[in-house]
Design a protein around this nucleic acid. Structure first.
Lengths: 217, 217
DNA sequence: TAGATTGTTAATCGATTAACAATC
DNA sequence: TAGATTGTTAATCGATTAACAATC
């Protein structure tokens, strides 16, 4: 994530590194898994083994936010899970706008894990007149021209961008303008003109594959 | 990513950091974009601006592999693109096996960028008897029980894992056993028992969203 | 208690940036 | 030439790891 930290916006005392924030969801994911397996207590060592990282790193990461464990015994799974959820602002249900209803958009709408994790896709937009008006999972596909108007009206802060490359930047400008603060970007392009308080995460499967083929030489 | 490489490497002065390898596909992506725009020459500054990273970092990254630019003028777009493709082993067509033909698998098969970038999905597997035997894009959906047999026979090195969490590890074991060396994993779980020479990249959209909600507090 | 594990400090390791001679 | 930009070195910055006192 480009956090746009410049000399003028030096990391303030007590601010947690972005790379640490990125690991918290993995810790949470693992705790949920352990809980499902019936584990009530865990340790930095066990978590580390599950995730393939060191126990020291986990303890260090958590120490940015407080003390959650007990010497000699470790962490109560349910408690730590709750604390991480709170830290990550996951106690509320987040409304999400999906932009683009092609194959990917279709798959995302049917991906149950979004709602399981309390990300509710509440709006769908597309530019194709043949799609506009159709109802998917009780959601009407809206005209992409109304993105700003409707998102602003609903106060939605999170958008999933699943549009073709060519329109990704234009749509992004609209989303930012509509007050969106987090964009999950599936277009394989670096989005520009992102204000400091708007976060972007780009998912590009091709980039992942190409990173791996390097090692297949 | 573990660097599982023998002493007999192509590069004498040691290993290129994995984090650098991860940026090469982004450089390539940007060069392709610039080429499409008709640009014949670019610079580390321009590339950096496009990607939101420093020009120094781009020059440093490229310097691990050789000298590709000219002082005063910069880089020939087409040439640098070709060099990066070569470095990343992208001159050949890679056959890919897709495991799991749910909504996500469906979207992936229809995602043209895979074939555009020379990743050809050649095999599809699913465990559902209702799906086995159906033909998608000229590819028969095969019984998941034949994963090892068929992948081994075809010598396929890259797999995309789009199966439910519960079976992800079991399928992974089979893939590794069948000789797969790169796994693009869409199951939100850390895969275990991965040999050093097998690479895994996990894509978890929920983790990305949760990273961003931290900042929405 | 004895063993285990946390939270934290200090040391190490690695990545990024700044700066500049070389040179197109 | 004058301006621009590379490739590289050294300095800086930041992240990870090791180690251990505290203590459950």
């Amino acid at each position: 994530m480009a956090d746009g930290t410049s000399a003028a916006t030096k990391r303030q005392e007590g601010q947690v590194p972005d790379i640490v924030i990125g690991r918290l969801p993995l810790y949470l994911r693992t705790l949920i898994l352990l809980e499902k397996e019936g584990k009530e207590v865990t340790s930095s060592q066990e978590l580390g083994k599950q995730l393939g990282i060191s126990s020291a790193q986990i303890r260090k990461d958590l120490s940015h936010f407080g003390e959650f464990g007990k010497q000699g015994t470790g962490y109560a799974v349910s408690y730590l899970k709750g604390q991480l959820k709170e830290i990550l602002n996951l106690d509320e249900v987040w409304s999400v706008a999906l932009i683009g209803f092609g194959d990917l958009g279709h798959a995302l709408v049917h991906y149950n894990r979004f709602s399981e994790r309390r990300f509710n896709i509440e709006l769908i937009f597309d530019a194709d007149p043949d799609k506009i008006g159709h109802v998917i999972n009780g959601i009407i596909i809206q005209n992409a021209e109304k993105i700003e108007e409707i998102i602003k009206a609903k106060g939605i802060k999170i958008a999933i961008l699943a549009v073709p490359i060519e329109v990704a930047q234009t749509v992004t400008d609209k989303l930012v303008n509509a007050g969106v603060r987090a964009i999950l970007n599936y277009a394989p392009i670096t989005l520009k003109n992102i204000p400091q308080d708007v976060k972007v995460q780009t998912i590009d499967p091709i980039a992942h594959l190409q990173k791996m083929t390097y090692y297949l030489g």
